[in-house]
Write a protein that binds this DNA or RNA. Structure first.
Lengths: 209, 209
DNA sequence: CGGATGGTTGAGTCACATCAACTAAAGTGG
DNA sequence: CCACTTTAGTTGATGTGACTCAACCATCCG
């Protein structure tokens, strides 16, 4: 078990991948730069998710902590040995693959949406779902309908492949329409309160408006 | 080893995932519909790639053949057993994970591009690279710079998250600019000839124009 | 108290989605 | 093998909305 402060590099794209990490608490930011130079943000994995599982010998994205993070590292080489000795069920490995793929799928789905409004709404709902799952285990019943966004709006914009200005304006629109409100910037990132979850869901799915 | 004709469903989203398939030759189309109802096309995997690797007990996308396809199926349960008996190297499994992730990465990268022109150019280059790799093994030296597109333009449009009309117009633009030309529709899909690879590469990377 | 970074707001342009109509091609059944 | 149907692709006209550029706040560093 390892504890890391906020804003630290966990590993870098190209580093030899010795460890695989299971996030116990906190949020990471995964980013990548292609040969063409374009930067991509892959996702913001959180409690219960796996990062660093790589078939190649090296990580293929940067991993940086957005908040203080607690994680459980596993040596990849030992992993193989454990598999062979049946000390680790192959199903566990399959689970990890699953989690990894879900992250990518989620991203592709949100990128395939046409309007920034739907994109943002979907992202918010995804983050909400992610937190609900995490808190369900830890607290049981949360204050509910609050979304913690540890990442910056620019990160969100990059993730959604939209301009930062558009991201800001879209947020404003959601506020103006009484769908959410900004509670405050508690340390890292901002905290949102959902006022109208139903409409947020509608916006996420509707192609127009 | 299994042979399948063109336009056949290999498996469906939600089916119990018993097999994993390694494509020997031919091209597949992977698609998915979310709960929201939006259809997504995940990719067009081809020779050497793996489909159907799923951590959950069920496939999470449809797989349909675009051309006649030859593939090597592997029972997932047997796979576990083979892992334990060391008849299958864990590295092999890691390789498969790798291939799977590359497909998703490629898709995310292309979706993150802003202009349809860059998106299409990148897609074409990706397909070209895919074919080159496949042919390098089989023939050695191909006629070169021909791209075979077994999928329809609508599929491409969905994959790129653009309108079909835009896809058509963008193709036209590439033709008008002397970057490629349509050779003919040989049975399934169309065949393109690249006239100016350099400019195609430029277009793929440049944010403007 | 500066300096840097992240966020907000405004004005203007261009390009993509949308709707609609039409052509081309491919698959279907008698 | 040819009418018929269906699907894929093309083209045009139009409006809107997202990007760009630019300047301006606010927030967090030291």
């Amino acid at each position: 078990m390892r504890n890391i402060a906020a804003n630290q590099m966990l590993f870098r794209q190209g580093d030899p991948s010795k460890y695989l990490f299971e996030i116990v608490s906190g949020t990471l930011k995964l980013s990548q730069v292609a040969e063409s130079g374009q930067q991509t943000i892959i996702g913001f994995p959180s409690s219960g998710e796996i990062v660093g599982l790589s078939g190649a010998g090296e990580y293929r994205y940067d991993a940086k902590t957005l908040t203080a993070v607690r994680l459980r590292p596993a040596r990849l080489k030992i992993l193989n040995r454990q598999l062979l000795q049946m000390r680790l069920a192959p199903e566990k490995l399959m689970d990890w693959i699953n989690v990894h793929e879900r992250l990518a799928e989620e991203h592709i789905a949100v990128l395939s949406l046409q309007s920034p409004l739907s994109k943002l709404a979907t992202l918010l709902l995804n983050q909400l779902a992610r937190q609900m799952k995490a808190n369900q285990i830890k607290i049981g019943r949360n204050a509910g309908k609050n979304i913690d966004l540890p990442m910056t709006q620019q990160d969100i914009a990059t993730y959604l492949a939209i301009a930062p200005e558009t991201c800001s304006r879209t947020m404003k629109k959601l506020r103006a329409d009484g769908i959410l409100e900004t509670i405050g910037r508690s340390g890292e990132g901002q905290l949102l309160k959902i006022l109208n979850l139903q409409r947020l869901r509608a916006i996420a799915n509707e192609p127009f408006l």
